[in-house]
Write a protein that binds this DNA or RNA. Sequence first.
DNA 1: TATAATGTTGTAAACGTTTACAAATAAATA
DNA 2: TATTTATTTGTAAACGTTTACAACATTATA
Lengths: 343, 343
Amino acid sequence: MAHTDRTAESVTIIDVAREAGVSYATVSRVINNKAHVKPDKRNAVLDAMERLGYVVNQQARSLAGGRSHIVGLVVQNLGSTWMGAIVRGIDEELAAASYDLMLYTTHRISARETTYVTTITRGMADGLLLLLPRDPASYLESLHRQRFPFVLIDHQGIDDRGPAVDVTNWDGANSAVCYLLGLGHRRIGFITGNLEMSSALDRLAGYRAALEEAGIEFDPTLVVEGDYSQQRGFTGAGVLLSLPQRPTAIFASNDASAFGVMEAARDHGFQIPRDLSLIGFDDIAEAATVHPALTTVRQPLEQMGRIAARMLLQIINDPTLVLQRVTLPTELVIRQSCQALEH
Amino acid sequence: MAHTDRTAESVTIIDVAREAGVSYATVSRVINNKAHVKPDKRNAVLDAMERLGYVVNQQARSLAGGRSHIVGLVVQNLGSTWMGAIVRGIDEELAAASYDLMLYTTHRISARETTYVTTITRGMADGLLLLLPRDPASYLESLHRQRFPFVLIDHQGIDDRGPAVDVTNWDGANSAVCYLLGLGHRRIGFITGNLEMSSALDRLAGYRAALEEAGIEFDPTLVVEGDYSQQRGFTGAGVLLSLPQRPTAIFASNDASAFGVMEAARDHGFQIPRDLSLIGFDDIAEAATVHPALTTVRQPLEQMGRIAARMLLQIINDPTLVLQRVTLPTELVIRQSCQALEH
DNA sequence: TATAATGTTGTAAACGTTTACAAATAAATA
DNA sequence: TATTTATTTGTAAACGTTTACAACATTATA
């Protein structure tokens, strides 16, 4: 209420102790919710804290051996809806535990790798969330050796060992293609993601498996390499649609490239879904608002973030814990971008 | 090279001092590039640091009264290309100064406002970058009173006082509309941004001024309210295109809503630019790859981030410095989404 | 060469916490 | 009630730095 800015000159644990008439150790116990404090003293401390507008000094706390209450987030870049959703989930979960988020870009890390990771692990952060690091092998190894808490998001890890969160990429791709097959499509184009990422590989494998199951021979000309960008989706679709025997449906490895396919289709005078069926992957917000609304494979992005954060917090609180990889289910969301093939 | 992980057990300034045969104060001087250290000792320390793999403990450093080398970034959400570009600029600039980035969401701040801001200012961060906070008045005031270093990005501030970075929103909108007028358009639709933001207000004013200059009476039915989202751009364009006297051109307050206009135009069977000219604002990456490529008003997003970060660093290093608002120029980027009106 | 001025180095205290340990108090047992 | 045991509280040291100050070494000036 009225305790606005007396705080400006730094209220310490000692000020609180004096105000409450106890020792500073007792104040520390109250702050950290430790046992062995009588209810009346506890209340006195709480009151004093409120009155003085005390806030803990994290630096001092973590220097003294406690937790820093900071989690590091390693990302490539923040400019995608995809990332935004995951980070939102992470942030919500961390906020609930009053943890803060430190941002590290992979760009920086690769520069002075080991030193940088050491800097992070040396006190600055209690744990690390690695969001799709392209080639994390080297510092992953280092983190592992130092037994520093970390969780991988949407990445296979070095050997599938250790805590991670991902989704059923193979299943998702597989069911998307099965859906198209069910609609009567036989020539189904595929635009890959960035093939350095395991998610892209898994989706490709899911596509191929679905065709194989259906007894359709794999045609490499129907697969073009992309990189999860709208631009590459556009050019890839351009190639596919210019084929002598063009595909009647295209499965794009993510929504962004599917939007590129939409552009290309329009350029070629094809209407979706009448002349071409289209499926994406991710279900980012735009997928529902685009026209025609995009049929796509939903990844529970926000939930991925939440769960990863929760796992990390668990490990931080109990370092002996050995958590396994969590794989969340994908789900085919049927909208207006596909239709049955007419003969 | 070979100093991989001896670091695991925490190398301190004292270890370095022992190794180099000097006192720890000297080591501190070397680390902070202070004067009064003989070259040979300086080198001895540098060598020892390298040999031991020393990295500074930020917590201890800032507790002892130094800088934390952390800058806080306050944002609403990370899911837009727009934000991604700005943050990239910020990150690059900070990396060069070996500053780290702490992420704070406005969502969190509003919850326990003053306390939260105090927490940040009390040691955790040396300064704050405020990226488009919707209504920052209350904590802005608090920051100002505490003389805590901060820089506003793309926001007017309480009274236009204090350090900030923004762009010529009015000019940009004005020149876009002038361009359309030059092409012969007279009925020009406008889709606003989120009118709680000053940028949206400025762009609207620029639009109105251009019409007025050209002696065209302002027609309120040609202005529909949006919120910078693709979705609202779509619905807004729907309204405009269904008008008995539909506009021959639309100026959307940002690229995302312009993409919505594209969808709507297609739905109505209008082809851009033949039947409808369209201009956006921002020049995000997709603007160039979309089809037809979008004519738009470019904001130097990455540069905004860079400059804001640089200003903040300046203020941190010299708190007496009084920096003024920096307004960067926008630029009309002409692509394929507009054409001259035929009579 | 003696002295002042300047440059270099080291010692000690401080920053705000946590935590091991000791002391004091209260409760339980004989 | 005397003694043991458990609970509560306080004191002191530590975490890894920065920085004021004092001490020492060097160079410049007279």
